[in-house]
Design a protein around this nucleic acid. Structure first.
Lengths: 355, 355
DNA sequence: ATACTTTTTGGAACCGTTCCCAAAATATCG
DNA sequence: CGATATTTTGGGAACGGTTCCAAAAAGTAT
């Protein structure tokens, strides 16, 4: 592993000069040529650790997620990675593997590793005391979460909840089940959107139609079974994740209930698998990748420019596919426009009806 | 950010003594107490960069994947992360975002970041010259790939191809389509397994039944359409990824062909979504998480013990669900044992028939 | 040619650790 | 109790860069 000193010797200059060449500081033409030749000849790569020690900057961003092997977080991570790749920062990924409280330990760990900043992709709230000890120490960005002390990028969950519910109301449904996620601010906002839509359409709020799960398949299945077991079952269900919606779909199928004929279904997230089901899922698209990209860009900005915390909220989109029956109505008498995944093709676009 | 010197001052000892306490080197009882108290009081965390500079060890492992937002790689990454978490190493994740050739640039980048080792989760082969320049420089482990120069962890693709095909042959199919992945050694081995099974069952190999895709949904859809357009269409199809199998399922559905009644289907990987389809996918399970875990453990061993490259091959398992009809035969007359995802429950196990 | 300004360069201190080595403190033994 | 063996400690040189500062070199004006 060659060092800057060896390059200096080979080029017949001092290491200061090599350093200058490396950092684009003006140097005589002659020296520059010789140094560059030596760098190439020796295949020299500056030692990022030594550099970081001197500059007190590691160019490393810590990223904490609850789980890597979940497509939701995978999309966000991909977004972060692609934003960082252009800036010379790298990301250290840590997963809490859904273990309660581990985010705090990981945060401290990454902190001691001298990451330049931290992206927390975690819906769970940090304890106030934890937050306080972080505050001011180094930049933190919350992705898919909100906080008063740090920058955060989140999605307009209220609007999402509203849109999904309104879509079902417009289709004439009055008894709409809701399968929420864990008890977080996010869920609360979606619930508020749901209630607002009901109110707007003069539809009564029925508490027994509300269930909650953990965003995963099995909990959607279970919740749907409970809803179907009600004396008067819902004619439509809005699930707060596509995974739960797919579970719900499976449950309906297991009980011989046809979607969308007997039951309309809306999901949330618009993961890829939403196109794969039969019927394909109508859902609320969250811009997951964008969430990550903006998160990445925000943390870099916070590190290099030290600007104040910002709060960004992204909109979401209703993607109409087959699981509500709305699709069929539109397409009546014409099947020619169907794409492989059962979406409606409109003018060669993405193949989804967006609202 | 407190340093070791400040701790030393606060404890009234030299920085050498603090360093000794930090590294578990024997020190007088009195000194240890004082140092520990000072560390706690000042909330001191050793600077990993300075430490790495001195030790020539970063405790960072570079991981290169083609894509993070694909559940296949997500599982592998989760496995790597969990193996590393126990060892004090952290992983820097880089994605080539499927761009040809980018793995080499990333490798060099990570190398210059002084990662202690590299895990390459990439099916594509590196150029021999690239490999040579890496060889001996620092430890590299290939996950889901093989190489003569480096340690590698892979799956027995030949056996996987064989098992999938044999399963279909046993069910009486003689005209079995094959949807392969991209042209890699992996695909070649699965093809060999397929051919071997055909030969074992005295079944003729028909080249026109072989298609290939990119492991993703759309390519499975397309390939299946081609197979269905054949003058004499296959009665069964083996797709080399679950994503392609799901695409194939959708294509069959679009053409009014019922699975498994009119067509049997086997996938590969056993991603979670394989349980979600209707019918649930019979598939070959790859131990993805284990692949990552062993990869992580192997690289750490290579770094700390400097032992010779090892080559590990993991077995895969046939998971029988609904898409081949084998399930129904077994379960005739009893639906009580069904789990939410349509697997067969046998003695409270994972809910799959494994072979 | 001389004095002065500007550019280019090398030397040395520093970033925060580890670790070797010699000095200091303590323990062991005759 | 002094001499020696052993343990514990502190000083200082790395590790490989960056950057300040002053010296050297080059350029400009008189």
């Amino acid at each position: 592993m060659t060092t800057i000193m060896e390059v200096a010797r080979a080029a017949g200059v001092s290491k200061s000069t090599v350093s200058r060449v490396l950092n684009g500081v003006p140097v005589s033409e002659e020296a520059r040529r010789r140094v560059e030749a030596a760098i190439a000849a020796l295949n020299f790569k500056p030692n990022a650790q030594a550099r970081g020690l001197s500059l007190r900057r590691s160019h490393l961003i810590g990223v904490v997620v609850p789980e890597i092997a979940r497509i939701f977080y995978g999309e966000v991570l991909e977004g972060i990675e692609s934003a960082l790749a252009e800036t010379g920062f790298e990301m250290i990924v840590c997963s809490t593997r859904n273990r309660q409280g581990r985010e705090w330990g990981l945060t401290k760990l990454l902190w001691s590793k001298r990451v330049d900043g931290l992206i927390l992709v975690t819906p769970r709230e940090f304890s106030p005391q934890a937050l306080k000890s972080l505050k001011g120490e180094f930049p933190v960005v919350l992705v898919d979460g909100t906080s008063d002390s740090f920058s955060s990028i989140s999605v307009d969950n209220f609007a999402g909840g509203f849109m999904a519910t309104e879509h079902l109301l417009r289709l004439g449904h009055r008894r709409i089940g809701l399968i929420l996620g864990p008890d977080t601010r996010e869920s609360d906002q979606r619930l508020r959107g749901y209630k607002k839509a009901l109110a707007d359409y003069d539809c009564r709020f029925v508490p027994e139609l509300i269930r909650s799960g953990d965003y995963l398949f099995d909990s959607g299945f279970t919740a749907m079974e409970e809803l179907l077991a009600l004396p008067e079952r819902p004619t439509a269900v809005f699930a707060a994740s596509d995974l739960m919606a797919i579970g719900a779909l499976k449950a309906a199928e297991a009980h011989g209930i046809k979607v969308p004929e007997d039951l309309a279904l809306v999901g949330f997230d618009d993961i890829e698998a939403a196109r794969w089901t039969s019927p394909a899922l109508t859902t609320i698209r969250q811009p997951l990748r964008q969430l990550g990209e903006i998160g990445g860009r925000t943390i870099v900005k916070a590190i290099t420019k030290k600007n104040d915390p910002t709060k960004i909220t992204l909109g979401c989109t209703l993607v109409v596919r087959e699981s509500c029956g709305a699709f069929r109505r539109r397409m009546e008498g014409s099947r020619s426009g169907r794409s492989p995944d059962g979406n409606v093709e409109e003018g060669g676009g993405t193949g989804d009806i967006m609202m």
